[in-house]
Design a protein around this nucleic acid. Structure first.
Lengths: 123, 123
DNA sequence: CACTTTCCTGGCCATCCGGCCAGTTTCACA
DNA sequence: TGTGAAACTGGCCGGATGGCCAGGAAAGTG
């Protein structure tokens, strides 16, 4: 038993919804063997939002937009995405434009970041 | 009173490491107001692995690179980043180039995605 | 003192990106 | 049938991006 007592498990709380975050913090705040991570602290695991952060209907993404978005998140250029999906670069730009619009992003990098934050895509 | 008590928070436990998963399950198993999700059950949040996917030393990012990276993740253009950091666009490009190199990315979008995956930045 | 690292700046240029215009097809739904 | 949404394609063009070259200044280390 050199493995002396299990060290505390440090949990990062990464929840956007303040209400939910508060409730979780309260519930988890004083459990022996478990501690919430401070800002910037390294954690063994994180609690992340899994609620289908509902996307307002008017900005629901179409299947094709999701296809393009996924490839964007992989760092694909318009040209590469076009090849992957067997469509023209123009069409890719068209979908990218819609994505920037719907995700309220300034560019493709911003679009991917927003989508990831909203849980639309998983990095 | 009318605010009838907060409903249970359902947490999904998505940890690969069996040991860590077991310990967490044990710790969280009987907390009032909180319940672990069954298989397939929808959860309000999930506990995911956040193991410090260590960054090899040779790709350690400098402070300035982290500054630029953070602003990139916010969708900032080279010009905007330059203004924010009070440096020239050329210098921003220089740091972006280093980032693409170190993160093995094909472009700024890819760089941000990689950095997020590695836990270098938080989206 | 040399030496290295980090940070900084400039020019040049091919390519990519995103916004604008315009159009066609297909399919579901009223 | 017509009306709309989605997907697709094209041209055009200003600006952004990224790679290449070349340097300089400051701080820390041997």
């Amino acid at each position: 038993m050199s493995e002396d007592i299990a060290p505390e498990i440090v949990l990062a709380l990464e929840i956007d919804d303040p209400a939910l975050a508060d409730r979780l913090a309260a519930l988890l705040g004083d459990i022996a063997g478990l501690r919430l991570a401070g800002p910037g602290e390294k954690a063994a695991a994180a609690i992340v939002s899994r609620d289908p952060r509902i996307m307002p209907d008017d900005i629901a993404l179409t299947q094709r937009e999701l296809d393009v978005l996924a490839l964007m998140a992989e760092g694909g250029s318009n040209k590469m995405i076009a090849r992957q999906l067997n469509i023209s670069v123009h069409t890719v730009k068209f979908h990218v434009g819609s994505l920037l619009d719907k995700l309220d992003a300034t560019g493709r990098t911003d679009a991917v970041a927003h989508a990831a934050r909203r849980g639309v895509i998983e990095l």
